[in-house]
């Protein structure tokens, strides 16, 4: 394995892990409500921009992060309660437009209150490069991978072992039946949006030291997360994670070996190709474990 390949792999896995977390957020909401939330990217933005702004107020990093995640979760729940829930019987496109409206609104608010400039979060544990078999990474890459792993493990434990998690799964399979057995489906939907906002915010915060952040950062990352979720098969958590990693690695390899000009087109070429042969994505219709 050449050093270059290893380097491309590292950068692909790091960015892919971010896509995976965002994709997982899409999957959770889709699972619970069959809604694609185009405002998902804004949770990334809220997470990272709020951390920046709380830090600037003089709060210590852990407090700032906790508050930022809490802010994103509350925003997610408000979004569900006041924008998505009232329109639950509307067409697919209508709900898409509502969430697009919400994302414009959130971006607008961020721009008014947090300004338009770019910000960098300080790295969690320094910037000293680490050498691995000739390739170099910074400690933040490890943070991204570590946090992603922990979150994925926690989420899968949550859905398989806890009552609320099982209730969400039940609701996604059959909302009416879930109601009959006494599940408060409204609460479940609220919870799903909150959880998905949490994932987005965490993703935004852990990559911000590497990628910088601004009020517009959610557009591109949100879009890539959507691609990851569809690639894996909507509603499949495993699929979203695999999809995210595939995208990240493919982008890095394309930039390294093919053409950096067309790197951004690669995810979309892949998704078209996959959908041509598997119209429900990689893990979509096979009834594998749904997260």
């Amino acid at each position: 394995m050449s050093v270059e390949f290893l380097q491309y792999l590292f950068s692909g896995v790091t960015i892919g892990a971010t896509y995976a977390l965002v994709g997982l957020g899409f999957a959770i909401i889709y699972n619970a409500s069959h809604v694609i939330n185009f405002a998902q990217g804004e949770f990334i933005m809220i997470g990272s921009m709020a951390t920046v702004s709380f830090l600037a107020m003089g709060m210590p990093m852990p407090v700032a992060i906790l508050l930022a995640v809490a802010l994103a979760v509350v925003t997610g729940m408000l979004l569900q309660k006041f924008a998505v829930a009232p329109a639950k019987n509307a067409d697919v496109v209508t709900i898409i437009i509502i969430t697009i409206g919400a994302s414009i609104l959130l971006r607008g608010l961020a721009q008014v209150f947090w300004g338009k400039s770019f910000h960098a979060l300080p790295a969690f544990s320094g910037n000293e490069p680490i050498n691995i078999a000739g390739a170099t990474i910074v400690p933040q890459n490890l943070w991204v991978l570590g946090v992603t792993l922990v979150i994925v493990a926690a989420v899968s434990w949550f859905f398989t072992k806890t009552i609320i998690g099982k209730a969400i799964l039940a609701t996604s399979h059959n909302a009416d039946a879930a109601k009959l057995v006494g599940i408060n489906t409204n609460m479940i939907l609220l919870f799903a949006f909150g959880l998905s906002a949490l994932l987005g915010a965490v993703a935004g915060i852990i990559v911000a030291p590497i990628t910088t952040t601004s009020y517009e950062v959610g557009i591109m990352l949100g879009l890539k997360g959507f691609v990851a979720a569809v690639l894996g098969g909507l509603g499949s958590g495993v699929g979203a994670i695999v999809g995210g990693l595939i995208l990240g690695i493919a982008e890095a390899m394309a930039a390294g070996y093919i053409s950096s000009d067309y790197k951004d087109a690669v995810p979309f070429v892949i998704i078209l190709f996959i959908l041509f042969f598997m119209p429900s994505g990689l893990f979509g219709s096979r009834g594998t474990e749904r997260v």
Binding site: Y30, I36, V92, V227, V230, L272, S280, G281
Partner: peptide
């Protein structure tokens, strides 16, 4: 949504 994704990609 798969159709939405494909046309968006195109």
């Amino acid at each position: 949504h798969y159709l939405a994704m494909a046309t968006l990609g195109l």
